[in-house]
Design a protein around this nucleic acid. Structure first.
Lengths: 135, 135
DNA sequence: ATAATTGCAAACACTTTGCACCTGT
DNA sequence: ACAGGTGCAAAGTGTTTGCAATTAT
């Protein structure tokens, strides 16, 4: 059903090397010295996204989508915090968040989909940096 | 600084008439009998988004962005739950969510940005409907 | 008067697709 | 051998922009 090709392997390895970072298609093509056509990058990425190996974000600003290696499946159970400043993604396994999810389901009658939800904000590091800059 | 024009008034009124719904630019142009150019729709929308009167979503699928009337400012303090099935948006003022935000800030060192965060899931109504369908 | 807004069409950026060729199994 | 993948260039989307004419203040 699915062949494992040089191109896909290279691409996945490239993403996997920086599990903290997100990459736009442009970055993948120009940044990582991959030898594969643009269309192939798109096809491979959507392939990985379907598989659940890679997560795709469509952040409000800046035109294109960004992709990030997340490994398999295990991201279904926890929440993701994305820093609006540095763009890093934090995988958060937290009972308080779990409690909130349960509360929303039981009290508000809304079944939360953790996979499709990302909590946005500013991480400690960026927060400190901006405080120092502002004074 | 800002003129109030017939076009913007019409557009805002159109969105305001269905505060529960989201509209794509296509829907706005073809659906609501507005007489204004496409570019003007885009410009007006991004104007309203900057003002905070309208919220813009870029959901993973289906190409374009969708827009929804949210009124002014008051959405900064509460969370939004969006139903992945019917697309409705629920404004949720909830202490448990507030507690979670505080927890994330204090324990995880991550300052949550409620305005930019949307919790995705399935609302009670759609959940019931799909249960009935599945059996 | 003058600064902002409109409309159109052209320009853009990102993504998808058709088709012939190539590759993994 | 054959299903699936690749590359290129062309075609699609959705969105933005240049510019002259128009409108709100």
């Amino acid at each position: 059903m699915k062949y494992s090709t040089r191109q896909r392997a290279e691409l996945l390895e490239y993403l996997k090397a920086n599990p903290d970072r997100c990459f736009s298609v442009r970055e993948i093509i120009s940044g990582g010295g991959l030898s594969m056509g643009e269309a192939t990058v798109y096809r491979a990425l959507s392939h990985f996204v379907d598989e659940g190996t890679v997560k795709k974000y469509v952040s409000g600003e800046g035109g294109g989508a960004i992709y990030q290696y997340v490994g398999h499946g295990e991201c279904e159970s926890h929440f993701h915090l994305r820093c609006l400043s540095c763009g890093r993604l934090f995988h958060t396994e937290c009972s308080v968040i779990g409690d909130m999810v349960r509360h929303i389901e039981e009290e508000h009658g809304f079944r939360v989909d953790a996979v499709h939800t990302t909590i946005y904000g500013v991480c400690a590091e960026c927060d400190r940096r901006s405080r120092e800059a502002d004074g």
